[in-house]
Simulated scan of single mutants.
Amino acid sequence: MDDFQGKRVIVTGGSDGIGKALVERFLEAGAYVATCGRSADKLYQLQVRHSNKFLHTMVVDVRKEEDCRRFIESAIREFGGVDVLVNNAGISMRALVQETELDTLRTVMDVNFWGTVYCTKFALDSIIANKGVIVGVSSIAGYRGLPGRSGYSASKFAVNGWLEALKTELLPSGVHVMWVCPGFTTSNIRNVALNKKGAPQGESPLEEGKLMSAEECAKQIVKAIGHRKRTLVMTFQGNETVWLNKLLPGLADKLVHKFFFKKGELVK
């Protein structure tokens, strides 16, 4: 899988951020790419930009099972099968548990977890037939619960566990299942992260200019897919958090709290 020339790749949530960078990297590598998103305008702009490449797009809300079915089936019709599925579509949140409305948690879980389940389930027969790769774009929040991101952490823990179970089931099949965990990456995900009322917060609490770029993130993900890595945890801070949480969870609690809170208020 080091060479993606002619490979049939599906990337969900490809109209922005890491997803868009993944789409463009796969296209540059000669792959046939199908992607989806909720913005028809952004998908149209992507299609125009790559009009000379094999790019198939569709407006999809991954919370909806039927949308996912239509998208996966259309990609399979268009390209004749699937070799790589990257479940990238996702949404974040930023609100304390005590203040968060339950619908906000449901929305995050529906997008991040059920979107991954739906698309994987509908693509699975074709991926098994082609001994392909299934990828979940997860998060450090899938290894360590983060304050202000309770629903996001829950959804990413669920994605990691579900994919690990699937990976184990498919061991004899030749299918590779993996999950990748970017650290804080420059993207629109924090601007559209849901607040306690379930509305986009409209701003980022982090210094975006100091974060890993979406393009660098995509480069690392595609390389990991090519090498069929089991997992990929990006950034020193991400690896430090994962290992500290395993070895010294009590200390991790204190350090994570210190990072996210200032004078008792959630600041990141």
Results as ranks from 00 to 15, higher is better:
residue 21 A to C: 06
residue 74 S to F: 09
residue 56 H to S: 14
residue 52 N to S: 14
residue 32 Y to I: 09
residue 20 K to Y: 08
residue 88 N to T: 00
residue 94 R to M: 13
residue 20 K to P: 06
residue 85 L to H: 03
residue 14 G to W: 13
residue 9 V to P: 00
residue 54 F to Y: 15
residue 35 T to H: 04
residue 32 Y to M: 13
residue 17 G to H: 11
residue 89 A to D: 07
residue 11 V to C: 09
residue 24 E to S: 02
residue 53 K to A: 10
residue 46 L to I: 02
residue 103 D to S: 15
residue 14 G to H: 11
residue 96 L to P: 06
residue 36 C to D: 04
residue 48 V to M: 14
residue 12 T to A: 01
residue 26 F to L: 02
residue 88 N to I: 00
residue 52 N to F: 12
residue 25 R to P: 11
residue 94 R to N: 11
residue 42 K to W: 04
residue 56 H to P: 07
residue 71 F to K: 03
residue 75 A to M: 05
residue 90 G to A: 09
residue 18 I to W: 07
residue 60 V to E: 06
residue 98 Q to F: 13
residue 14 G to P: 10
residue 44 Y to D: 12
residue 54 F to K: 15
residue 27 L to P: 05
residue 84 V to S: 00
residue 48 V to D: 06
residue 52 N to C: 09
residue 51 S to H: 15
residue 70 R to A: 15
residue 28 E to P: 09
residue 66 E to R: 02
residue 35 T to P: 00
residue 99 E to L: 14
residue 24 E to G: 01
residue 74 S to W: 09
residue 81 G to Y: 04
residue 25 R to C: 08
residue 91 I to D: 03
residue 43 L to K: 06
residue 86 V to K: 01
residue 14 G to A: 03
residue 101 E to T: 03
residue 65 E to D: 10
residue 71 F to S: 03
residue 12 T to E: 04
residue 69 R to Q: 14
residue 52 N to A: 10
residue 26 F to I: 02
residue 67 D to C: 01
residue 83 D to I: 07
residue 56 H to E: 14
residue 42 K to R: 09
residue 101 E to W: 07
residue 86 V to W: 10
residue 26 F to E: 00
residue 75 A to N: 05
residue 80 G to Q: 04
residue 35 T to I: 01
residue 82 V to L: 01
residue 53 K to W: 07
residue 92 S to P: 11
residue 59 V to A: 03
residue 62 V to I: 10
residue 45 Q to R: 14
residue 91 I to W: 10
residue 27 L to W: 07
residue 13 G to W: 06
residue 65 E to W: 05
residue 22 L to C: 10
residue 88 N to C: 02
residue 66 E to D: 12
residue 30 G to N: 10
residue 21 A to D: 03
residue 9 V to W: 07
residue 81 G to S: 03
residue 61 D to W: 07
residue 89 A to E: 05
residue 76 I to K: 01
residue 20 K to S: 03
residue 28 E to T: 13
residue 72 I to F: 04
residue 63 R to H: 10
residue 33 V to E: 06
residue 101 E to Y: 08
residue 30 G to S: 10
